[in-house]
Design a binder for these strands. Structure first.
Length: 197
DNA sequence: ACCATGATCCGCT
DNA sequence: GCGGATCATGGTT
């Protein structure tokens, strides 16, 4: 599948966060193809107290300072991973958090990754598959090893997806942060069942 | 001490 | 079914 071009990820972070809605995220995992539609994102900018990059480059966040188009995966709360798409120019620490996707393909694999013991699938677990940033990572098998992948040339890619009418896109304060709540940098497709809240 | 989360439990409809 | 409280668990600064 053809990835979006580098130029897409070099754009301003807020624009990328908005424009990623409706795009498809692909993951080749154990020879199986997983696909989801991105339905919820959050922008994290360089002068933003909520951003991991706010206090400068560290071993953990250094991928955020690459040019756009790389994957930044971080570990949090002792057990979860979250995935971001790095944006903007080399040397500036900005990224877009993928908060939720709608499963499109590879749903059996996602179910196995999220709920290994469960045998069937009901509406409850279908929604619960990918309606949060760490849930999405678990479903797609994204963890430490995927940190730093180039989205233009690896087993994880972003491709053209669905066109989302702009009046379906809403924005709000970001979730789970202490500082920067006044910034409305969370973007989501209104009414989509996989949006986290 | 804090943390860009998620699962569970509990009391209430 | 819900909404709120609580906790699990370990890396980072």
């Amino acid at each position: 599948m053809i990835s979006l071009p580098r130029s897409f990820f070099l754009q301003p972070t807020l624009k990328v966060a908005h424009d990623l809605l409706g795009k498809h995220i692909f993951r080749l995992l154990d020879n199986k193809l997983l696909i989801g539609t991105i339905v919820e994102t959050e922008a994290y900018c360089h002068n933003d107290p909520a951003s991991h990059s706010f206090r400068g480059k560290t071993e953990r966040n250094k991928i955020m300072f690459h040019e756009g188009g790389y994957l930044y995966v971080y570990f949090t709360y002792g057990m979860h991973f979250c995935a971001n798409i790095v944006t903007g120019k080399e040397g500036i620490g900005e990224a877009v958090l993928i908060r939720a996707v709608e499963p499109i393909a590879g749903i059996e694999v996602m179910m196995k990754n999220r709920f290994p013991k469960q045998k069937g699938i009901d509406r409850r677990s279908f929604i619960n598959l990918t309606n949060g940033p760490a849930k999405f990572c678990q479903a797609f098998g994204i963890a430490r090893n995927e940190n730093g992948l180039d989205l233009l040339d690896s087993e994880i890619r972003i491709t053209e997806g669905d066109v989302v009418p702009s009046h379906h896109i809403k924005h709000s304060s970001r979730i789970g942060i202490q500082h920067g709540k006044e910034k409305l940098w969370r973007f989501f497709i209104a009414g989509n069942p996989w949006v986290s809240r």
